[in-house]
Design a protein around this nucleic acid. Structure first.
Lengths: 201, 201
DNA sequence: ATGCTCAGTGAACAGTCGTTAACTCAAAGT
DNA sequence: ACTTTGAGTTAACGACTGTTCACTGAGCAT
């Protein structure tokens, strides 16, 4: 009782990956069941052995994005524990993730603000978690350093807005420009943290 | 030589407005020529009296967005001249614009980061102008107040990222929550400006 | 070895898509 | 008054869409 389920799982993955790729290129609402099936080397009818319709695939895609986002948070939090250059370490983790799964990230960016209402709300929820966890990390640091915590929630929201917005440029940039982009993001994040009294400049 | 052109111009406007509305709801790449024509009370074939194909309509839509963005800049700059509460005045101008042309703004947000490459680059160019003009305004203020101007370009970029990202929430929010949202944006923008040494807190 | 399960196939369906062609008929030019 | 123009219509095309159905054939339990 293995080969069977294993192969099914493989084609399922191919379907999801194909869908993520295509959705990243032309947007989720431009997804075609037939294109997804073709890209996954499957007949259109075969699609229905895995999902009831495209919307169900859509839910799985959102879950996939949510999962990757949580892994990113974990990685960024763990790198954040370093003694110096916390901001740089976290943002490098973020950019690594962006370049490991570019279509996943592109889809996230495109559907977060545009896109259909349901999609948008699902992504907003995940990003709110992202912001909240960043806030916790900042608060722990601030308490340890005896600094004010009043502005932390808004600072976390601002930092995420900056990292997502500016980081998105990295998707269109050639490799050798990445480090410059990271420096830019770091400086902008430092502006926010300094404004909130969390670091001195 | 009037009635004829006048009526043509009217249906052209109906086509553009219908396209903006539909694109805001389901994304530009999900636009259907037939849907656009129907929403503009025209037969599909009639569409071709106005545009060669959907892509040509797309270019016009980008121009439309660019124009509105420039009008917004003008309004925000003029309100920025006030003696006190410059930030608030500018951001209120921004939010006014967002609510006057919600689909135009929704489309802008959705296609800026996701969307097709050409669309994305066209919008990025316009937003870069937006950032540059904000930078000029900040620099004039900083010089007059004898404050440092070093971080202004990055501060402007960060401010725009925040205003667009957080301001996008206003599109999904009921009216009575708007003022709270504006307060939030103002505080976050002040964090950046304070971090850049442009205001004291 | 035999029969069952079920992932994937091939063909057909009703709709929708973009696009073309020949048309109508009110406005504009003469 | 007579002709020309051109915005918009109706009808049809081939291609593509999501979905259904009966099928095949390998993986599995017995």
């Amino acid at each position: 009782m293995k080969i069977r389920l294993e192969q099914k799982e493989q084609t399922r993955r191919r379907l999801i990956d194909a869908a993520l790729q295509l959705a990243a290129e032309h947007g989720f609402s431009a997804l075609s069941l037939r294109d997804v099936a073709k890209a996954a080397d499957i007949t259109p009818a075969g699609f229905y052995r895995h999902f009831r319709d495209l919307d169900e695939l859509g839910l799985v895609m959102v879950d996939e994005i949510a999962l990757a986002l949580r892994q990113l948070i974990r990685e960024a939090r763990s790198r954040f524990k370093e003694r110096r250059g916390r901001t740089r370490a976290s943002i490098e983790a973020f950019m690594d993730y962006v370049h490991q799964k570019p279509h996943l990230f592109r889809l996230l960016l495109g559907e977060r603000l545009g896109g259909s209402r349901a999609f948008r709300e699902a992504l907003r929820k995940e990003i709110d978690i992202f912001i909240a966890e960043l806030g916790e990390e900042l608060e722990a640091q601030a308490r340890a350093a005896g600094r004010p915590t009043k502005d932390i929630p808004l600072a976390a929201e601002a930092v995420v807005a900056i990292v997502f917005s500016v980081g998105a440029e990295g998707l269109d940039l050639p490799r050798h420009r990445h480090s410059g982009l990271i420096d830019r993001i770091i400086t902008e994040v430092h502006l926010v943290l300094a404004g909130a009294g969390l670091i001195k400049r």
